[in-house]
Design a protein around this nucleic acid. Structure first.
Lengths: 245, 245
DNA sequence: TTCAGCGATTGACCCGCATCAATCGGCTTG
DNA sequence: CAAGCCGATTGATGCGGGTCAATCGCTGAA
């Protein structure tokens, strides 16, 4: 079907069938029946994004939302002072670009942390189709709502947790999301640097590194560069339950 | 209805005309024409919420979203350890309850900080009507998107600002929102306690108090209990522009 | 009017994390 | 293979804001 393999970076006009996609239930197509899926199929295009390339950046006109098909993304915002703040890490089945609806312009940058592929859903068409398919409309609203809830969870993390709790929460969250996608919940490669983790968690990279080392020494995890193995998931979870006290 | 449990007093079945509402342009009705406004009118009910009463709480089934008509709300989340984290303060024209769409249950509590009045928009009806009125659909999506952007702004605040910057940003934000509603941008009453401000900003109440005092001594603001006057708005803004360096 | 209670203020002390700095180690390039 | 680079690790030090505690000063009730 699609032999775009030759083109390095690439907007592929290839159709990709949501109806065939293994991520369907994690994604916007969740809960749709066959005939509705076909209407989605007509709208969705696929696009490749190379590692370290940006899919969109702050200020770009908002035209579409994107579902991660394969790969891994970060979103971040440059503050006026030029500091980068990472606002999220995104893996297969997750939706990017919802921030752009508000002002018709994106407010954050989306960068691939490994070679990735996304499904492009032009927003105008999505609006139109979701008027005709109530279950798609609901699913779309749930995704936006989930994003709000996710952000609030991060606000709690940033507002009230200490460094060890933040790192533990981060690892547990990553582990759960890997598991939901059929990967091992206990062993994975971090696609981001210590600095990016720190930016996301409101910590400095040295603190991230030190905390990883501490967890390693305590037998909670094993760390070798970007390779993480969770050895004692309950121990990690326990760090979250009792606060300082 | 279990709404009666959360609010012992007052479920008013009164109709309220969006078409007559002075907040129309700030609210969901923004950008609608007359005939569309009347369809909204048919859906919206008004409800009073007394000071310190909860409009909904975490775990409540999600049935409607709410537009603040008059008054002032906070939203907060109780963490497992029993800590309260304030996730937002909400004034006239702002929408509450969007977090509930995701799981059909609210994840936060919404509490009136003064006697307030809200417009209740049953979600099922809102979905239905917005399928028929594209401009309402878009407006609704923009509100959800705005909420996402707002939360990301708070993530930046919590993740990268020091105490003085947070307080300055908080005051400027409040000032702007007052102004947008026709109130003085330079003089207002805080409806929340120092502890609630601190919880929202990821600080302790003592730090909030000390920082207010410091700003007062420096002539940036005048503080008398909950009464705030902004004396040097540029000075406050300047605190945001140069980071630690 | 006086008293009780709660929120706000202010001070003293201390700890967790930032900061600064040196070294390590894996990966890329010639 | 060596050189250079970038990210990660580890150590030493200092400070911002948390913690604990005492006092102040509204506000509302008797």
């Amino acid at each position: 079907m699609d032999q775009i393999v030759t083109t390095p970076l690439t907007l592929a006009a290839t159709r990709v069938a949501c109806s065939q996609c293994s991520l369907r239930e994690l994604c916007l197509a969740g809960g749709l029946d066959d005939s509705d899926l076909h209407r989605l199929d007509e709208m969705v295009q696929r696009r490749k994004v190379k590692r370290q390339h940006q899919m969109f950046r702050a200020g770009d006109p908002f035209e579409a939302i994107y579902a991660v098909r394969t790969g891994f993304f970060k979103t971040d915002i440059l503050t006026e002072e030029g500091l980068e703040q990472v606002t999220g890490f995104h893996m297969a089945g997750e939706i990017l670009g919802l921030d752009g609806i508000n002002t018709d312009h994106h407010v954050c940058n989306a960068t691939a942390l490994e070679d990735s592929e996304v499904c492009v859903m032009p927003y105008a068409q999505l609006e139109e189709i979701s008027r005709a398919i109530p279950s798609l409309q609901l699913q779309f609203h749930k995704f936006m709502s989930r994003e709000i809830v996710r952000d609030q969870g991060l606000m709690i993390l940033l507002g009230s947790m200490r460094a060890e709790e933040r790192i533990a929460a981060f690892l547990i969250n990553l582990s759960q999301r890997m598991k939901a996608r059929g990967y091992s919940a206990y062993e994975f490669h971090l696609r981001m640097t210590r600095e990016e983790i720190g930016s996301y968690l409101g910590l400095k990279l040295e603190t991230v590194s030190r905390t990883f080392s501490k967890f390693h020494d305590e037998g909670l995890i094993s760390v070798q560069q970007k390779h993480i193995r969770i050895l004692d998931a309950d121990g990690l979870r326990a760090l979250l339950n009792h606060t300082t006290c």
